[in-house]
Structures are given as C-alpha cells and as structure tokens.
C-alpha cells in the first residue's frame, strides 16, 4: 500500500504539474478537493486519466469519481480493489 501511495502521489504531481510539491507534502488522508490540495473539476478529469493510464480502470463519468477521489488513500484503496494492471 505504501508503495502504491508513493507512486500515486508522483503520478498526480506530474499530471497536475504541481511544480513545488513533493510526495511528503501531500497528506494521504487529507481531502483533495475543497480543502487540502484544493483541486478542481479539471484535476478530477486528470485523475480519471491516471486511473486508466496506469491501473487500467475506466470510469464512465466524472460523477463516479466523486466517491473515489476523497483522499490519496481512498484512491489507493479503490485501485487495489479494481486494478487490471
């Protein structure tokens, strides 16, 4: 799980171009939207691309992402259960 979380943080930093942030700066349990990192709807679409690109998980709509993208940990848990690669 720790390795998956670290990989995921690095993939998010790259995809969202979070230039001045390191994996250590991101709290795995903090909310990603609203507070915490303060991501928005376009970032959510980028997270959907990450799920497909690295883990072979295809979401049908942004609405599906809402329950999954609460925190880094919640995404990692979803990936563990649903990954196809």
């Amino acid at each position: 799980m720790d390795e998956l979380i670290l990989n995921l943080k690095n993939q998010i930093i790259e995809a969202l171009n979070l230039e001045e942030i390191t994996p250590d700066d991101i709290d795995s349990d903090a909310p990603l939207f609203g507070g915490g990192l303060g991501l928005d709807s376009i970032d959510a679409l980028e997270l959907i691309v990450i799920l497909e690109k690295y883990y072979g998980i295809k979401l049908a709509s942004p609405a599906e992402g809402r329950g999954i993208f609460k925190s880094i940990r919640s995404i990692a848990e979803y990936i563990e259960q649903n990954r196809t690669r």
Binding site: A15, L16, N17, I42, L45, E46, V49, E52
Partner: peptide, 9 residues
Amino acid sequence: ELLKPTLFM
C-alpha cells in the same frame, strides 16, 4: 486515447 483535459481546456 488518454489525452489530457488540461491541454484542451
């Protein structure tokens, strides 16, 4: 496939 919305927007 796997295109970035950040670029298109």
